[in-house]
């Protein structure tokens, strides 16, 4: 079918020069194949459609009823994005819970980890699929963006930034969920623990948590805890302020959680 096929037997031929075989086989080779399979896997079950429909319904309800989109009379999407952290709190763990626990429960983890790919490629590939899936759900909220542009003249730069912030936050939640999912083969347990931990990350910027710490902990620690908050970071990005520190924060969080996922999968796969 394609002209590249003539080179593929070389990777299978043990006599082929190793240099040529290695050129196509970096440590992350196969990531894209894993991502494609995983993402395709979401749409093979009703889970994907249920998730997307609920996500769109709930964002709609929150935006128009709780957020008072029309009553505010402003051409922006503040009332839409404000609820994203709370929506993600319950919906994202529902996506991440199956990432690794399902592989372990069905024994496919033995298949996956004996394929000629690195553990890093497997962890990253699965995470990227989940992230792309939430990205698709998020992108399907585009009618509200069209609506606000039709009704008024919003700052589309701010909206774009808010979408980016929302996407990054979803990635953060997913990475945490990925690590939790690697711990247990029970999806319900993975879901509950992920919700609790993500709740902690969300609330760490709120006065009710900070007051509890500020009563006895030194100021730098209180500030550090506040710095962990998804809410603080998301709010600033949603206002259109893309601070490099916020990007680094989410990037680091995702990287650390994926590294932890790898370590957990490696240590728990035998049991």
């Amino acid at each position: 079918m394609t002209t590249v096929s003539d080179s593929s037997p070389t990777t299978l031929d043990p006599a082929a020069p190793p240099a040529r075989a290695f050129a196509r086989q970096g440590p992350l080779a196969g990531t894209w194949t894993i991502t494609r399979r995983e993402l395709g896997g979401y749409f093979l079950t009703p889970v994907a459609y249920v998730f997307i429909v609920i996500f769109l319904l709930v964002t709609g309800v929150f935006t128009f009823h709780l957020g008072g989109f029309f009553e505010a009379g402003q051409a922006d999407l503040r009332s839409f994005f404000t609820f994203h952290p709370w929506l993600y709190l319950f919906l994202v763990p529902a996506v991440s819970m199956r990432l690794w626990s399902e592989e372990r429960k069905q024994g496919t983890i033995e298949l996956l980890l004996t394929l000629p790919i690195t553990l890093a490629a497997a962890v990253l590939g699965k995470f990227l699929a989940a992230w792309a899936f939430t990205g698709i759900a998020l992108a399907l909220t585009f009618p509200i963006w069209i609506t606000v542009n039709y009704l008024g003249d919003p700052d589309n730069g701010v909206i774009l930034a808010a979408y980016l912030g929302s996407f990054l936050m979803a990635g953060g939640f997913l990475a945490i969920g990925s690590a939790i999912s690697a711990i247990t083969r029970n999806q319900v347990i993975a879901f509950v623990i992920t919700v609790v931990i993500c709740f902690g990350f969300l609330l760490s910027g709120y006065p009710m948590v900070l007051n509890f710490f500020s009563a006895w902990a030194p100021q730098p620690i209180v500030e550090a805890i506040a710095g962990f908050s998804f809410l603080t970071r998301f709010d600033s990005i949603a206002k259109g302020v893309i601070d490099l520190r916020d990007l680094v924060y989410f990037g680091t969080l995702i990287a650390l959680c994926l590294f932890a996922t790898g370590v957990i999968v490696e240590t728990k796969k035998g049991g």
């Binding site: 593929s8 196509r24 896997g41 079950t45 069905q106 496919t108 000629p116 790919i117």
Partner: peptide, 27 residues
Amino acid sequence: PAYPDMTPESFLRFIADIRGVRGTERK
């Protein structure tokens, strides 16, 4: 073990892809 939601067709394609068997060779 195999991914239960996949068909043998898509599963074998996935295995071929990850083993670097592509195009007409894969078929």
